[in-house]
Structure formats: C-alpha cells, structure tokens
Design a protein around this nucleic acid. Structure first.
Length: 829
RNA sequence: GCGGGGGUGCCGGAGUGGUCAAACGGGCUGGACUUAAGAUCCAGUAGCUUAGUGCUUACACAGGUUCGAAUCCUGUCCCCCGCACCA
C-alpha cells in the first residue's frame, strides 16, 4: 500500500495543486448578488486558528460543508460559501506569554497556516470575502454594535456574583462554566466573585429565543439543549414578610407552602446584609469568608451549608414565623435569590434541615403509604395528598399547586410567574487579545460611551503580559479625556468575550470589505439567512444562542429584517482516533490532515471522511479505511486514463439514471455515506466504452467528493469549462428500467447456483465440471441468451442454453423438467 | 437526578414491519495474474445439509403485538453525550 501511495503521490498532489491554482485564477467560487438566481448560503463554523493547524475534525466539518456547497452550486444556486477566522482569544494570548511572542504575530502565523491547509483540501470558498475578527476593520463593528446595544439598554454594567477562572484570569459567561469548571480548564474550579461587569441583556429576548426554536430545521438534540438551557419554568411568586418588608420568593411547589420551616437566602444575594441582625453579623461574615475562599467545590460533594441571619420570615398563609438562613446552595441570580424551604418535600432542604436540626413538617402524603417526619430518610418529592394544610388538606398535590397559587393571587399575597435559567450574557474579559469595550469612565460624568466617529478604539500593541489585565499596562491607552467634560478620564480595559465576535460574522461575510458600515443591508437581505450551517454540537448553548440573540437584537435596531440567522443546521459527528478515543496528543492517536493529504491526496481524504458512516455520527479513524478510499480513487484514475467514449448500453443508461436519482436525494439529505456507496457501485458496472453523458455524469457526481481528479478528467474528456461550475445531472426517470435489475439478479443467482453445484459435485463426486447445460422456459430464452456471454466469462466454462421445449436439446438426465420461471434447470458434466 | 442518542456479522457500518444470513467498505481464506512481492481481478467468509435444496441459530437480554419483527410495544442490562444544588 505504502508503495502504491508513493507512486501516485506525485501524480495526485500535482493534479490537486494544479486545479487549486486554476480555480483561484479563474475566481470561480467568487460570487456576488444576482437577483435572477436563487441564493444558497452554505456556512461552516469558522475556526479559531491555533498554531497546531487544522485537525481532522476541521477537515471533516469543511468537507461536509463543501460537498453541500458544490452540490448546490452545480444545482443552479448562487452559492455563498465563505471562510474566516475567529482570531481573538485567550489561547493566542497564553501562547504569546509562554513563547514571548505577540498574540498578533502568533495569530497571523497560525491563520496563514490554516488558509494554506484549507486550500489544500480543495474547499470551494469565496476567499475574497475572508475575514479575521482581530482586524480593526472587523472589530470596530463589534464596538459599533456594543454602542448600539448600550443606547438601546441592551448593554449594561452591574455588580454581580460572577464566575472567575483563576487560570484564565478572567471572568466567564455562564455558558462557559461547565459543571462548575472552566470550559477551557476541566481541572479548574470556577470561583464566584462579586465584580462590576458588562452584560448583554439576552434575557430581553428570552421568550422569542425559546419560542422560535420550534421552527428551526435543526437537530432535535440541539433544540432540546437550547430549551433546557433557557430553562423556562412556571411557578408562583409568594411574598414573605421579613422585618416588615416584602420579600418575594419563587417556587414551583406552592402546594408545599404549609410545610415551610425555614427560608434560605443566597450567600451572594446583594441585599443579604439587610437581613442580618447585629447579633448574627459575625457569624454570617465568617460563613461568607469561608465559602469565598473555598471556591466552588466538587459539585456532587458540596455540602449544604449555611448560617442563621437572625431574621424571621412570616409565612403569608399561616402567619407562622420561620428562621431565615443564608446558604451556599441558593443561586442569587435565579428567581429572587431566596427560597422557601420545605424539608419534607425537597431533598436539599431536607439535608439542610437535618444538618441544622430545623423542624421537618410533612404536608404531602404519598398514596397508600404513611410518612413521618421523625423517621424520614429523605425528602418525599413526588405527588400525593395534602395534609396539615388547613382548607387545602385532602387535595391532590397536583391540583393544589394551582389552587394555592390562585388563592395567593386573589389575596394579593403572590402571583403566578415564570422563571428562566438563562441569565444575561457577561461579556467583560480581563484579558488583552480581544475587542476593547468602547467605554470611558469619567469621575465627573460617569460611564461615557465612546462616540461612533472615534471608532475603532484600537487595541494597542504595546502591553505587558503577566500581571493582571495587560491592557491596563498601557498608559497611553488607559488615560484619555472625557468626551463630555474634557476632563481626565480612563478607558475601559476589559475586552469583549470572543463570542461577541462570532455572533454576527455570518452577516459580515455578505459584505466583508465594507468600511462605512458593518454591512450593506441590501446585500445582507439578499444572502441571509444562512441556508445551511455546519458545525459541531459543542456550540449549542453558546455561539448558537448568542448568534440568535444578536440577530433578533439587530433586527429590532433596524439592521435586519429576519428573525433567525440559521435556517438549517447540521452537526457532524465526532471523529475519534483509531483506538476509539478522542484524538489527543497525549494518547498519541492524532492523525494530521496534512500528512494524509500528502500521502493519499485530498480527494482520498475527502472521500474517506464521508464514506465510513453517516456524517452526523461519531466514527473512528481507520488506516485500512483510508486505504480503501485510496484504492477507489486509483481505480477511477486508471479507468479514466483508458476509457473510450462511445455508446452506453440501455442497461448502463438505466443504472446511471437510477444512480443520479438516488445520489441526488442522498446528498440533499446529508446521507453522504450512502451516496458514496451508490457512486462506487455505479462505477463498478462501467465498461471500457461508455457514452460521454454517462462518463461526464459520473465525474460530476464524483466532483463533490473528489473535485480535483474530477476536474482533471473532465478536461481530459475535452471540456474547457470547470466541472465545479457544471450543471448537476438530472435523472431521466423514463430511462430507469427495473427489469434490467431483475434480469441481472436472475443471472447472478443462476451463476451462484451453477457454482454451488460445481462445488458439490467436486466435493461429493470428485468430478470436475466441464460443460454446463441450461434449460430455460421459452419466454425467458432471450433474457438468458443475452447474458450467455457474461455467464461464460464469469464461470470460465463452456455453457450451452436450450429452451425446455427444444426437441433437439441435449438432456441425458432429463433435468429440463426442473426449470421454473426465473430459475433455469441445470445439468453439468 | 433530568434530558437525548445508541447496542446489528471478525471489524467499521447500512437497514427501521415481509423481497434479510443482512448493502457497502475493511479484514481474513482460497484462486487467477506475476520469477516474486505489491497492485489488480474472481470466489468464499453463522452452522449443518444438498446437484442449485432444506433446516437450525442470529441483529444486547427477556417477554408481547402480528399471518410475518433487526425493524412496533413492555420490562431489564450496558454504552455514549448534554445539563446539573434553577427552588
């Protein structure tokens, strides 16, 4: 295999380079708006250009997208297929610190490497539109949108309990915290800090974000993930009275209100201190210090802890007074940051009550069983019948939820409400390599937005890394004048989360060179929304939510006229190493696309990546598998070197049209693996001479997967155009003749039968078969006669065929009587 | 815990009520070609049986629906992924 690879290496790589150059020279993938043509916007998630270069997952992602783009282009669409780089971000900055290199240099180098690797894959991008987010011509529009959001009250600053990653040395958005750990550092607990930060009001659009999910043609799984992330829950807000003041709390279980024995307020609650009595101040402070220094422990092991605030809350229905605790398990940002605790019917409250010896009161009985507060080992959280609940006793708990809520509402003691898990998007980052937030702080005038005409606020190159926020080390940057009073002022030194950059890059592609505005509205309204987005599932609750938010916000700011950015989404599966593990350097199972391209060619790699399994499923790399694809590519090359164009048989024409029909459907539905199989099967039946239409049609279909060799042989067949811009073949269904298939099957099974008998007589009777006699029904005589040659060839024996009613037939053992329709009788000697 | 997706031959993986011992690829075995190897081509690849047949066992396991199930239903086991102290 290796030897063969060597032989064809020069050949393939030379062909590939040649056509990549031709495509570039001919600018054939560059597009512009054309009102006469239907557009198709095909987009793959743009990469973060790391210095490691393209990995196999990228190659898979782009191949999947490219096949679709090529298909749509050939099908007559005006296809926008752009590429760019998510060039800001922490890894570059960290690498810079490590290597003593500037993040900019690091990023530009990495990016150049990415571009050349992507080009070597034969991807049909309109490179003319390429964008990089670290370019001031790009990020100035981040700043521009930030200012628009600020004006519209969609960007705001507030002090809040935020997530801090000690390794990244910056705060993170909620979306970037996974199970209490930093998304970039799986071993690092995120700390909760009280900081003043910039937020984007994504929650303003929360209902729309949720509601519009159902119309998206996205994988169900992603839609569900977004739904869960948004986390809408219906409940009741109940007003408890503490120290004479109303403190509303949110609950989904108003049916348990008679079981409240204490309250818990979040340790991060901004008004916590209002509740703490003089006598308890010391205790509470001690507790707060403790949980601050501990950071967010291993979630599963985290014990519920708290301390009494000294205050009591009055239950609005019972007027009972219960103690108010502050606790580490209540989230400040959800609901009202305080909960009513019902230890009998909530596991967390139960544990807390046990720990601090707070009474437990059962108010819901399971049917058929009795539970007792004294002997309970865990909370009873299921449905049951209410007890000890005054006039609501004996109600089913499910009904009681509604009835108690209604009762509270009518007495103005509470109201039905909804709550969401999703919070506003924290975009401040205390790091250098990102878009500066265009804000100035003036002691006199406060928070002043930079004026639009002063954009971009350039990211200064001269900064010191290592101590705190690098941007703060550049005095020239930090010190400025207040635009309002002209007095001394300071610039915001936080930069934007890079997800801000990626939230609208698909809009910029529509008009990536515009230096007057972020994009021309007309151009955007021609190309958008993205018809087909291709990328990994890991962005379900980050990029894909932010981008949807951005689209809606920009729509309301009159920049856009549509609601959703990505009509269809396709998630590719994960490409694992050959050992079945995620490819990683430490496991030594990484396969590098560039190495494979050098050895087998890009066409082989592209073909392989989509032929193993359905592209949305995970699959493992296989060295034998790539060999198999390589063999096919070589067979195609060998075939086209010698094939003559002439006439194809009706059978081939039938098979061709069937292949076209099925492959077209498969590609349309991302069943690339099945399309490849059908293409291979069709290739297998081609003869030494075929009609130009068939040969060209085959090459066109092949060109999605193997564009280079397809282009090469397209030209060898005498064409001067690019196959990449040719018309996709259309199946002529009238020419599909299923009887050919049937006949073929009959002949195949006949050959199988003959072989079987030959083997049997060889083994049982030790006889070599010499001559085969076939007896067929008269009306089938022609069918089998036509196939006689191919039967002879495949058996390599003399074969004679008779109709059963032929009086002259040679039939010494009188086998002809066994003939059945579709099953000729056989005699062998 | 909640939610989602899966478990098919030696392997990767199609197939989601009959035409299935199951596409296609890979591996392996045998044969052809060749001085030889590679490549290529052909055949075989659950078991037994047989002049082309028939039977048995098979699509995680156990039941069920059906004339008929890898495919539908129920239960069990296992694997993967996402979310996770959200009140």
């Amino acid at each position: 295999m290796v030897k063969q690879a060597e032989v064809n290496k020069i050949n393939l790589n030379a062909i590939e380079k040649k056509w990549q150059k031709e495509w570039e020279k001919g600018k054939i993938f560059q597009v512009s708006e054309d009102s006469k043509k239907e557009k198709f916007y095909c987009l793959e998630m743009f990469p973060y250009p790391s210095s490691y270069g393209l990995h196999m997952g990228h190659a898979l992602n782009y191949t999947i997208g490219d096949i679709q783009a090529r298909f749509k282009r050939m099908s007559g669409f005006n296809v926008l297929h752009p590429m760019g780089y998510d060039a800001f971000g922490l890894p570059a900055e960290n690498a810079a610190i490590k290597a003593g290199e500037h993040p900019k240099d690091y990023t530009l180098k990495s990016m150049a490497n990415f571009v050349s690797q992507q080009k070597s894959l034969g991807l049909s991008y309109d490179w003319n539109r390429m964008l990089k987010t670290c370019d001031p011509e790009y990020y100035r529009w981040n700043q521009f949108f930030f200012l628009k959001f600020f004006e519209a009250n969609l960007a705001y600053r507030k002090k809040a309990a935020v997530n801090w990653c000690p390794k990244c040395k910056t705060v993170l958005a909620n979306e970037q915290v996974h199970s209490g750990k930093c998304w970039r550092h799986e071993d690092t607990d995120v700390e909760i800090k009280q900081l003043e930060q910039w937020f984007i009001k994504t929650t303003d659009y929360i209902e729309e974000l949720l509601k519009f999910i159902e119309n998206l043609q996205w994988p169900e799984r992603i839609k569900l993930m977004q739904e869960n992330w948004i986390g809408k829950s219906f409940g009741t807000e109940i007003n408890f009275i503490i120290n004479g003041k109303k403190w509303p709390i949110f609950t989904t279980r108003p049916d348990t209100i008679y079981g409240v024995t204490f309250m818990v307020v979040s340790a991060q609650h901004p008004r916590l201190m209002d509740l703490v009595t003089e006598g308890q101040k010391k205790e509470v402070q001690k507790f707060l210090d403790k949980i601050k220094s501990v950071s967010e422990k291993e979630i599963e092991q985290l014990e519920k802890e708290g301390v009494f605030t000294g205050s009591y809350a009055e239950n609005p229905l019972t007027n009972e007074k219960v103690p108010v605790y502050t606790g580490n398990f209540v989230i400040a940002e959800y609901g009202s940051g305080m909960v009513m605790a019902v230890p009998a019917h909530d596991q967390r409250d139960f544990e807390f009550a046990k720990k601090y010896k707070i009474p437990i009161k059962v108010v819901i009985m399971p049917s058929g069983k009795k539970i007792d507060a004294k002997t309970m080992k865990e909370a009873f959280v299921d449905e049951g019948i209410l007890v000890n609940s005054e006039k609501f006793s004996k109600l089913e708990s499910k009904k009681a939820i509604d009835e108690i809520a209604n009762h509270l509402e009518s007495k103005k003691l509470g109201k039905k409400t909804v709550n969401y898990k999703m919070r506003d998007w924290l975009i401040s980052r205390q790091r250098y390599w990102g878009t500066p937030i265009p804000i100035i702080y003036c002691d006199k005038c406060g928070i002043i937005p930079v004026s639009e005409k002063d954009l971009p606020i350039l990211l200064p190159e001269k900064v010191k890394f290592g101590k705190g926020n690098p941007l703060a080390t550049n005095e020239d940057f930090v010190n400025t004048k207040c635009p309002k009073c002209n007095g001394k002022a300071r610039r915001e030194t936080d930069t934007m989360d890079t997800f801000f950059d990626s939230s609208w890059y698909f809009l910029r592609y529509c008009d990536s060179k515009n230096n007057k505005e972020p994009f021309d509205k007309k151009k955007v309204s021609y190309w958008m929304p993205v018809n087909q987005y291709v990328g990994g599932a890991e962005h379900a609750c980050m990029h894909l939510i932010y981008a949807r938010f951005f689209t809606k916000a920009l729509r309301d700011l009159q920049f856009l006229t549509f609601d959703e950015p990505f009509t269809k989404l396709f998630n590719q599966g994960m490409l694992l190493g050959k050992d079945g593990n995620k490819m990683s350097k430490s496991l030594g199972n990484v396969v590098n696309p560039t190495d494979i391209i050098e050895k087998y060619g890009a066409d082989t790699l592209r073909l392989y990546l989509v032929s193993v399994a359905s592209p949305d499923k995970d699959f493992s790399w296989s060295d034998e598998g790539i060999d198999g694809s390589f063999r096919f590519v070589n067979k195609v090359i060998t075939y086209f070197k010698s094939v003559k164009s002439g006439k194809s048989t009706e059978k081939i024409v039938s098979k061709f049209n069937k292949a076209v029909k099925e492959i077209t459907e498969d590609i349309d539905n991302f069943r690339y693996n099945l399309a490849v199989i059908k293409l291979r099967e069709f290739f297998e039946v081609l003869g030494n001479e075929e009609s130009l239409g068939v040969l060209e049609g085959f090459l066109k279909m092949l060109s999605l997967f193997c564009p280079h060799i397809a282009e090469e042989f397209w030209h060898k067949l005498g064409n001067k155009t690019f196959i990449s811009l040719e018309k996709w073949p259309v199946a002529d269904e009238k020419k599909i003749n299923e009887t050919f298939e049937k006949q073929e099957q009959q002949v195949d099974s006949l050959i199988g039968d003959i072989r079987n008998i030959i083997n049997i007589i060889k083994e049982k009777q030790n006889k070599e078969a010499k001559k085969i006699y076939l007896y067929v029904l008269p009306k089938e005589f022609d069918i089998y006669s036509e196939s006689l040659e191919s039967i002879k060839i495949s058996l390599n024996l003399e074969v004679k065929i008779f109709a059963v009613n032929d009086k002259q037939k040679y039939d010494p053992q009188n086998k002809s009587g066994k003939a059945k329709p579709g099953k000729p009788a056989i005699y062998i000697e």
